[in-house]
Amino acid sequence: MEFRYLGNSGLKVSEITYGNWLTHGSQVENEVARECVQAALDAGITTFDTADAYANTAAEKVLGKALRHERRSSLEIFTKVYWPTGPKGPNDTGLSRKHIMESIDGSLTRLRTDYVDLYQAHRYDYETPLEETMTAFADIVRAGKALYIGVSEWTAPQLREAHGLASKLGFQLVSNQPQYSALWRVIETEVVPASGELGISQIVWSPVAQGVLTGKYKPGQQLPEGSRATDTKGGEDTIKRWLSDEVLTAVQKLEPIASDVGLTMAQLAVAWVLQNPNVASAIIGASKPEQVASNVAAAGVTLDAEVLARIDEALGDVVERDPAKTTSPATRVA
């Protein structure tokens, strides 16, 4: 496993982060989830990402239980706040001081830890003054409940304003967690340049585009039984944008490229996002332990300019590049 600094901080994270969105507490049985976490540890992963909203807090409980016997200082544990949790009352969502302060305590209890290494605003909250949000984060850092603060899916202007407030309040904004893959490159024109200037790293999610970049979905063929595309607990909703024959046909052109560099298509996809110097880590999920071991092989891989050009040519116009696609809900979701 290779490690990279997170933003301008002194914190190092594993190039591959194990995340449990859509799996722990919902799609995967708890014992299998534990086996996946153990597979991540065995592969050298030290960084684990979750959120209070995943499976309505159940994912944090599963991860906390799976990591309970590990040396805490050898791990980097990340979680998030914003989306509705609990009974989903009027204050059970957003980035108000009330919701943040109550949420961090709930997350720490479920994760069985006294602190998280990174606490992230899961989306931007247009209904709460940013200064209120950042002041609450500053107080959480000063209380020792979080070591660093990050965000997820924030735009370049939002990052700049938040970074300025964080500096005034005496803490570091070190990361952004956006969707990023060879198919979804909306952060490249605005978010990445701004982040580079500010000393903010990307911790990217969905590097294999919900599994489409593994090549298992074939144009004109029935969806594989038991795949995310057939999962009625949320998986099918997250992947459907990629299931057009146009996209799937382009993705199949990546198979010979992966073969030429000695990688699986999934490994090629993860290695691709890690070529971006602003990316500190790529988040992988897993429903089986063997998937973890396979994806970790992407760490430390260098893809030369010719390979990157071939990938661009293969995917062509199916790549999404519009920076306006980096968005947060205009109003809080109840």
Score class of each variant (00 low, 15 high):
Phe3Ile: 12
Gly7Met: 03
Val13Phe: 07
Val13Glu: 07
Tyr18Met: 13
Ser26Asn: 02
Val28Ala: 15
Asn30Cys: 11
Glu31Phe: 12
Glu31Val: 15
Val32His: 12
Arg34Gln: 09
Arg34Val: 09
Glu35Asn: 13
Cys36Pro: 05
Gln38Ile: 02
Ala40Tyr: 10
Thr46Asp: 11
Asp49Asn: 12
Thr50Met: 02
Thr50Val: 06
Thr57Gly: 00
Ala58Tyr: 01
Val62Asn: 06
Leu63Trp: 04
Lys65Val: 12
Arg71Trp: 01
Arg72Ala: 13
Ser73Ile: 04
Ser74Tyr: 09
Leu75Lys: 13
Thr79Ala: 07
Thr79His: 04
Lys80Glu: 01
Lys80Ala: 01
Val81Glu: 02
Thr85His: 02
Lys88Met: 06
Gly89Cys: 02
Ile100Cys: 06
Ile104Lys: 02
Asp105Trp: 06
Thr113Leu: 09
Val116Lys: 05
Tyr119Ser: 12
Tyr119Val: 15
Arg123Met: 04
Tyr126Glu: 00
Glu131Tyr: 10
Thr135Ala: 05
Ala138Leu: 11
Gly144Ile: 13
Ala146Arg: 01
Ile149Thr: 14
Trp154Glu: 06
Thr155Tyr: 07
Arg160Lys: 13
Glu161His: 08
Lys168Glu: 09
Gly170Trp: 13
Gly170Glu: 10
Phe171Gly: 13
Pro178Thr: 14
Tyr180Phe: 10
Leu183Asn: 03
Ile187Trp: 03
Glu188Lys: 03
Val191Trp: 11
Pro193Val: 12
Ser195Gln: 13
Gly199Ala: 08
Ser206Phe: 02
Gly211Tyr: 14
Lys216Glu: 12
Lys218Arg: 15
Lys218Asn: 07
Gly220Ser: 13
Gly226Met: 12
Ser227Arg: 14
Arg228Asn: 13
Thr230Val: 07
Gly235Thr: 05
Lys240Ser: 09
Arg241Cys: 06
Trp242Arg: 08
Thr249Asn: 11
Ala250Thr: 08
Val251Phe: 07
Leu254Lys: 09
Leu274Tyr: 06
Asn276Ile: 10
Asn278Thr: 11
Ala280Asp: 02
Ser287Asp: 12
Lys288Leu: 10
Val296Gln: 07
Ala298Thr: 07
Val301Pro: 04
Thr302Leu: 00
Val307Tyr: 05
Ala314Ile: 14
Leu315Glu: 08
Glu320Ala: 08
